[in-house]
């Protein structure tokens, strides 16, 4: 299936916003494992996912054409 990844802040420096084909990934936990392997930089910072513009608070099913936002905390003022 195809999903859209939208990255924010410092995460966009190593994950470009993109549409990607993922196979065998049915939920957000599996996606996190996939992303951390593909983009090891993710392992060293805090970030939050939003699935179809809703914050992900626990493992959630992902479907074809879903949008996943990945954002780090911002502190600048």
């Amino acid at each position: 299936m195809e999903i859209e990844i939208i990255s924010f802040g410092s995460i966009s420096e190593f994950i470009e916003s993109q549409r990607i084909m993922v196979e065998g990934i049915s939920d957000t936990d599996a996606l996190i494992t996939f992303l951390q392997e593909k983009f090891p930089e993710l392992q060293r910072i805090k970030y939050k996912l939003a699935l179809n513009k809703k914050l992900v608070q626990h493992n959630t099913k992902i479907g074809n054409q879903d949008t996943i936002a990945i954002m780090p905390p911002f502190s600048g003022g």
Binding site: L55, Q57, S75
Partner: peptide, 16 residues
């Protein structure tokens, strides 16, 4: 804290 429950370590993310 609903978005980021725990503060990042100092130096984990850059500031301005």
């Amino acid at each position: 804290r609903d978005i980021f429950p725990v503060a990042p370590l100092s130096g984990e993310l850059p500031n301005c």
